[in-house]
Design a protein around this nucleic acid. Structure first.
Lengths: 191, 191
DNA sequence: CGTTGGCTTGAGAGGGCTCAAGGCCAGTGG
DNA sequence: CCACTGGCCTTGAGCCCTCTCAAGCCAACG
């Protein structure tokens, strides 16, 4: 069960994990299931856990005054799920994180963070992830201020084909910040 | 000269810096001046240094096929300046980073990174910064897909009044992803 | 006092939005 | 086995926000 996580960690460090380290990880991460439509996190609550997705798909979104949802993150297998702001600052979250399919996760509680960060490979991994996350969201910003709606979709589709197939179009549209109708029309010439 | 940097670092850690640590920092960071319009980094070059801004202001921007500039980052005193992607991956940068005013920096070369990360307070600092950066760019993404041009400006002005005062309007407009004329009109009722 | 950079204003065009309706498909219950 | 329902995607019409193109103004500066 922990293999996908170990594989993921190994990708970031050169050295293998020792048995001891694997034991620490196994004790820090617990297995968790969510049924479709169940929440991993609800608005107003503090995000206490970070999860590694073994199976399934989730979405993170906010709800504005008019009740409209805005999708900030779409997550599938081998990605991490967390509201970084709430987790890091221990403040109430402004977002919902919802299982879009039945989900299986390995989660660790915030109190275990220091413990697992002591493992060098994990430390390096979180360091790289943090950099990469930041680079990725900067790219996303650049795309939104630079590209037209259609281009943004093509771009996204090219970089994350699995995501596009996994979620309904209107969720993708929300993620890209465009109306579902616009996305539908944009896809017309492609079909 | 190193005081502003030491102050900055102290804000992130509970413990003070030891003399030994201060010595390491002083040897790792070198003082650098840039005159207005000089580049800290040019497109196509690898970003080898990270800088802490003691004085002045800089802007990071990309240039598209049509020659138009798109501003990604505006930076002033007590901020860090770097193209994270190029610095982290050692790949050619897609951006320019230009001194918008005469600038004084403390910079360290990438090769010194491991060395300074061994200092616990610095390690904690970079960790926090990395989280905060990521949170901030996520917020920026949310704003761009959620808010109208005008709202985005008001929002930005509220959060970063110093930046708004320091740079000309058309640079702010580019940063927000809107046309200068639109920003000008948006400001009309405010004046 | 001409040049340069920045800001404003106007007019017209267009990309994307909203509102509204219709079609398709899968799941569900009679 | 069929009708019904809900979720999703598509299409059309009209509108509005924002962009583009163009011109003019003002202040700073050499």
């Amino acid at each position: 069960m922990y293999e996908p996580l170990f594989d993921y960690i190994r990708r970031y460090g050169k050295e293998a994990l020792t048995n001891e380290e694997e034991t620490i990880i196994e004790s820090a991460f617990e297995f968790k299931k969510l049924r479709k439509r169940q929440y991993f996190l609800e608005e107003g609550k503090v995000c206490t856990h970070t999860g590694f997705v073994l199976k399934g798909a989730l979405r993170q979104f906010s709800v504005d005054d008019t009740g409209a949802e805005h999708i900030l993150q779409l997550v599938i297998e081998n990605w991490w799920v967390v509201d970084r702001e709430s987790f890091h600052n221990q403040t109430p979250s402004k977002y919902f994180i919802e299982a879009w399919e039945d989900v299986e996760l390995l989660v660790f509680h915030r109190t275990r963070l220091d413990e697992i960060l002591k493992i060098p490979v994990i430390n390096a991994m979180f360091w790289h992830m943090s950099q990469n996350n930041h680079i990725a969201s900067q790219k996303r910003v650049e795309d939104t201020i630079t590209l037209s709606a259609v281009k943004r979709y093509e771009n996204f589709q090219q970089h994350y084909p699995e995501i596009v197939q996994r979620f309904p179009q209107h969720q993708i549209a929300s993620y890209l910040g465009i109306a579902r109708e616009t996305l539908s029309r944009a896809r017309k010439p492609i079909r």
